[in-house]
Write a protein that binds this DNA or RNA. Structure first.
Length: 569
RNA sequence: CGGGGCGUGGCGCAGCCUGGCUAGCGCACCUGCUUUGGGAGUAGGGGGUCGGAGGUUCGAAUCCUCUCGCCCCGACCA
């Protein structure tokens, strides 16, 4: 490809609305342009990268006998009604009507469609297991799209679905899928972790995420510094150490005035106590009504764990307005003693004594609160976030570390959730009808590319891992109007393509500095500088983007060495 | 959805508070000449309903009202 003919609109300055480095660099390198919030056009350089990622995914999916399909992005409402998600999915599902007033949605995911295909076409246990996958455009009308292609509303996703007759078969595929995922992300040159995860709205009970470590990531993952336990923080278990302290004298309940002291900080400062003495009461709105969650004052409540403990369909933090309406109190003085809500407590709470809580009266807190004596708790469980330095839940000496990351892949076992609601049944060897067991597996294609930039860049621009670089090499003629340089550059270009190296020829009449800047911004792994000086000595210069190292090689004899230089990167 | 910010040639911005000639600057773009081993110099040139609508005024990018869009901070997800 000749640079002068390609649409590579590079920018010297970052667009003002880009926040994270991958977004800035993708725009600057002319890979993407924004159309609307969370909706992007992918330009030639960007598409080349996405196609590389897709190809790697395809190869690994095919290796585990995945079969590629292409499902409709526009899906009828009836199908979603069958699974129950038409009502459940909320505003994130983009809905619209056709000319006949029939309701449709733009697919945010494809469980319904694939389950429909399989229930129609797969009837016998002999046809199972089967893995089907596609690489498709999804649309999720996110509350807050951001960070460019990393969290768009429209995005490309590889989604795979597997169908089984037994749990064992499901787990087998799950594990081959997880190793395929590991290979994919390794091949994309990413530093990632596979972590335990909550299965979210899709449901199921066995789930892992593939998280690329990056400070700009929106996810927090916790992992043990001594064993291999790693988990999304929203799921990460906490271990509660049993206290050996002799039970202290149990105080009686006492009211203390705490005028205008609402936050944990204010109260602890005012009463001169550690936040560990406080019990935090947080009210959530759920499909089962308002509930209160209790954690120690220095802890963060984890809504996902709470949701699982309550076993409710949905849960959101209650608005102050709603709280006031229900309890007659402003936030800040709520307490678990004699409150008229169902109470769910973290497992640390029963170990506390002589605690301090809100009193459900304005300006007053209670001291001497005892779990057994004073609280009427519905259920106790793990509902707090794990913290850095917490003991590992899996091993003894281990301590928890927390890092930020970008979720690029997610695998989970769905079980019979969709096959039961949508009647996807097969006949077993005895001729008995049974629901199919399912698994589902996703990879964000664009997000993977963005994550690769987050991990591989410097102040000059992107440093693509060669496997997903838009081009592997770029020829930079020092002066393209010099005949010797011109013809040498063309010869190198031709030879490299013949050797299977995807090469870009910068045939623009720009000065060398400009070409360097663009090559660096674009992140092409190998630069080949062709100039009259070196050419006079029968040499050309090759330079690595990664570390700026350069060497002279003989021209034309050593052009054939270039593929092996690339493969060592 | 709540809170904050911003909309001025393709990109980055100034001008707005305190209304006043033809709306500026840098980069990019086009033409000529020179230049060509790290974002060239020079001389010309093209391109803007100042997000939109309404209002105030002799006069609006500037003031007022409404509206649309985008970005950032919090609950969701590949």
């Amino acid at each position: 490809m000749r640079y002068s003919k390609l649409l590579i609109p590079t920018l010297k300055e970052s667009p003002a609305d880009a926040e994270v480095i991958s977004h800035k660099l993708m725009v600057r390198a002319g890979m993407i342009r924004q159309m609307a919030a969370g909706i992007y056009s992918i330009l030639p350089m960007g598409l080349r990268v996405l196609r590389k990622v897709e190809q790697i995914i395809r190869e690994e999916m095919n290796k585990i006998e995945g079969q590629e399909v292409f499902l409709p992005s526009i899906q009828p409402a009836e199908l979603w009604a069958e699974s129950g998600r038409w009502d459940f999915y909320g505003k994130e599902l983009l809905r619209f009507k056709d000319r006949n007033n029939r309701e449709f949605c733009y697919g945010p995911t494809h469980e319904e469609v694939i389950t429909d295909i399989v229930r129609r076409e797969v009837k016998s246990y002999r046809q199972l297991p089967i893995i089907l996958y596609q690489i498709q455009t999804k649309f999720r009308d996110e509350v807050r799209p951001r960070f460019g292609i990393m969290r768009g509303r429209e995005f490309t996703m590889k989604d795979a679905y597997s169908f089984h007759t037994t749990e064992e078969s499901t787990h087998e595929t799950y594990s081959s899928m997880s190793s395929a995922y590991s290979k994919i992300f390794k091949r994309c040159g990413l530093d990632f972790k596979m972590v335990e995860a909550d299965s979210g709205t899709i449901g199921g009970n066995f789930s892992h995420e593939f998280v690329v470590l990056a400070n700009s990531g929106e996810d927090c993952i916790g992992f043990c510094d001594s064993c291999d336990y790693a988990s999304n923080l929203e799921k990460a278990a906490t271990k509660t150490l049993s206290t050996n302290i002799k039970s202290p004298l149990l105080e009686e309940l006492k009211e203390v005035t705490t005028p205008n002291k609402k936050s944990i900080e204010q109260v602890t400062q005012f009463l001169q106590v550690s936040p560990k003495k406080l019990i935090k009461t947080i009210v959530f709105e759920t499909d089962q009504g308002l509930v209160a969650g209790l954690v120690r004052g220095d802890r963060q409540i984890n809504p996902i764990k709470l949701k699982n403990l309550i076993d409710c369909e949905w849960l959101i933090p209650a608005s102050e307005e709603l709280i006031t309406k229900t309890t007659g109190l402003p936030c800040g003085y709520l307490g678990p003693v004699e409150i008229k809500l169902k109470i769910f407590a973290d497992k640390e709470i029963p170990l506390m004594s002589n605690s301090i809580t809100g009193s459900n009266k304005v300006g007053i807190h209670l001291t001497g609160v005892q779990f057994k004596r004073d609280l009427n708790v519905e259920k106790v469980g793990d509902i707090r976030n794990a913290n850095e330095g917490d003991p590992c839940p899996k091993c003894d000496p281990g301590k928890f570390k927390i890092k930020r990351g970008i979720e690029v892949g997610h695998i989970f076992i769905l079980g019979k959730k969709y096959s039961e609601s949508m009647q996807a049944l097969y006949l077993d060897a005895q001729g008995k009808e049974k629901p199919i067991i399912m698994g589902c597996y996703g990879i964000g294609v664009g997000r993977t590319a963005a994550a690769a930039i987050e991990q591989n860049h410097d102040e000059k621009g992107i440093i693509w891992p060669p496997s997903i670089a838009p081009f592997q090499a770029i020829i930079l003629p020092v002066n393209f109007s010099d005949d010797a340089v011109n013809s040498a550059a063309k010869e190198i270009y031709k030879s490299l393509w013949e050797l299977g190296v995807e090469t870009l020829l910068d045939d623009r009449s720009e000065r060398l500095g400009v070409k360097f800047k663009d090559a660096e911004l674009l992140g092409i792994p190998l630069q080949i500088v062709v100039g009259p000086k070196n050419l006079g000595e029968g040499k050309i210069e090759i330079k690595l983007r990664k570390n700026n190292e350069s060497q002279l090689i003989l021209f034309p004899e050593e052009i054939s060495h270039i593929p092996s230089i690339l493969s060592k990167l």
